[in-house]
Write a protein that binds this DNA or RNA. Structure first.
Lengths: 354, 354
DNA sequence: CTGTTAGCGCATTCAC
DNA sequence: GTGAATGCGCTAACAG
């Protein structure tokens, strides 16, 4: 099985030089220290021939850093979107030469501490702390010992750490704008509202989406035709809310707080023989995979999870490299980074004025 | 920032003993080497007081192993199910004291090699190679250098490595049995069939599910009423296939090869004003999240991704620990491990005989 | 220009 | 019972 790895010493022996020479050459500083071209070539050839690869563990011990990141999340499996976030982070990390440990806490704080410890034991150079449900939380104290960034986690007050969040407020504005510009006046909210404080979930997305929506509505002299504050944003709840609305007549437009609510609303509308978007328009948030599969395709504002993961990884690496450089300039990137939520324009909105 | 970690030397100094003594004590062999109880206590106290944690990188260099696994997949983000697989693996690994590097190749073989190299450089003790779409493939040669297991990857012939797969064939049998026992005779296949070789996707799941289905049908003197071989198992295809069927009359039962096809079939059936399961019964595979959200709930056989991930991690660790023990008994666990696909019994099947 | 030396943090012989 | 010395594979001072 383990046919021993070839070491720097092997290469040096093969090339007939000292290990330090081999080290210099292979780290690219051969020319700078003016090692003879012939020696350099011999070392390179030997390394090539033997298939030498530096032992990262040894390098890590020696240099004190490991080109390794930790990614800790409360859940990795909740949805495709969670996967996208991890994927974005892993890919960006790899592009910068980092591997990443992934851990999942299930929301358990003890476990979180243990995972952080296990990662620090392995000398990770930085940590991404992520949540799949944006909300505020206390942060473990260890996070100050190492570069860290918060991914999809809201903090109260001014965060010392970089924070990456979706631009929920702007998405709320964009969603309302979409409906208003299509000529809709009676817009029913499903998931939160109608008042700015009618928000039941701990998800801070709800509050911000709502604020954005109300802002635009207000700017156009409108208010929500109705609002339904819901704790669990799942299809059955969307179904019930839409059904209740339909009993009282045909609502012009439904602004659902996520795609699963929208899916439930679709079911209610279509079971009554009504048409989307002919009779009722629907706009939503998230761009979960069902959004594209629904009939007709659901117009929605995508949670940019992939881009968020990438941004988070880029930020930690920025901080790491900054620290390593050891300048006394301020650490880069702290503060909140809002990632835009792009519109997925499909077929669930009717344009009244065209 | 980096307020230095406390090392074994710090502990030894604090306790007033030599590092080797401290090492012995903390590795639990203090009693065996008969170190004085007082020294032992002092060392333990010091370690406690200073918050000592062994540097895993150093231990890795010294002992040659790192309590670290690599998980390489062609995609981590394709669905919630992919996440479940990773989650199962990560959790099982953690329970055994291992952290895991996660990498994603997107199907790119070069990238796969690079990731494997990066992991081997970091001295991973074992590797899980996973795919989100079961099918055969060539394996990178490096895999023989380290304990490895294949997760959701089929191999031709007798694999030298442990392989973890869903019990697709049995699930095919179970799905057909469900329909037959409910009294259905005209069973239409959507996704593959009607002949045993009418399989267009590279997914080996299709072939095995089909084989299981045909077996049970045959045992009951039946054959598929029709079959529709489809390359892309997505809702639009299911919609089209079911629509075509409905033009010729009302099929009694639809056996869909996955939930997304079933979702499309639902749309076709319900748009025609027909009822599930009143007019047509539907059974499917995967248990994607939509299966529970559809109206009525879709009876389906769940891909046990979580359990598969767990099994894979347990297997690598078994092999690692076996190798480490150095006995000359055969390596454990090689061969194929089939994980059962449990039935999610919901409301899409009508029982004709009750 | 190149080789020798020391040490990153730890575990393990081997003397005392 | 305990401590000093050695080396895992590598890099960085320092000599030569």
């Amino acid at each position: 099985m383990a046919n021993k790895r070839v070491t720097l010493a092997d290469v040096a022996a093969e090339a007939g030089v000292a290990v330090s020479t081999a080290s210099l050459v292979l780290s690219g500083r051969g020319a700078a220290v003016r090692i003879s071209t012939s020696s350099q070539q011999r070392v390179r050839d030997a390394a090539q021939r033997l298939g030498y690869r530096p032992n990262a563990v040894s390098v890590g011990l020696r240099k004190g850093h490991t080109s390794t990141l930790g990614f800790i999340s409360d859940s990795v499996a909740s949805s495709r979107l969670a996967g996208e976030m991890i994927k974005g982070a892993i890919e960006a990390a790899r592009d910068r030469g980092f591997m990443v440990f992934v851990g999942e806490t299930g929301g358990n704080t003890t476990l979180e501490r243990q995972l952080l410890d296990a990662m620090f034991d392995r000398q990770v150079d930085g940590v991404i702390l992520a949540s799949m449900l944006t909300h505020g939380r206390d942060l473990p104290a260890e996070l100050t010992r190492t570069p860290a960034v918060l991914l999809n986690i809201a903090t109260e007050g001014d965060p010392a750490l970089p924070v990456v969040l979706p631009a929920e407020h702007q998405a709320g504005r964009d969603a309302a704008t979409t409906l208003v510009e299509a000529g809709h006046r009676d817009i029913h909210l499903i998931g939160a509202g109608p008042g700015p404080d009618d928000v039941r979930t701990i998800s801070s997305a709800a509050r911000q989406r709502l604020a954005g929506i109300l802002e635009v509505l207000g700017e156009n002299g409108l208010a929500p035709a109705s609002g339904r504050d819901i704790n669990q944003w799942l299809p059955p709840e969307g179904y019930r809310a839409a059904s209740a609305l339909l009993e009282k007549g045909v609502p012009g437009a439904l602004l659902c707080f996520n795609d699963r609510l929208a899916m439930g609303a679709y079911q209610a509308v279509q079971e009554r023989g009504l048409s989307i978007p002919g009779d009722v328009s629907v706009v939503s948030f998230d761009d979960a995979s069902i959004a594209a599969w629904l009939h007709p395709g659901l117009t929605t504002f995508a949670l940019p999870h992939r881009a968020m993961g990438k941004k988070a990884a880029d930020l930690v690496v920025d901080v790491i490299e900054h620290d390593r450089r050891g300048t006394d300039q301020p650490a880069p990137g702290s503060g909140v980074h809002l990632i835009p939520m792009p519109k997925r324009d499909r077929d669930s909105v009717r344009h009244l004025n065209s």
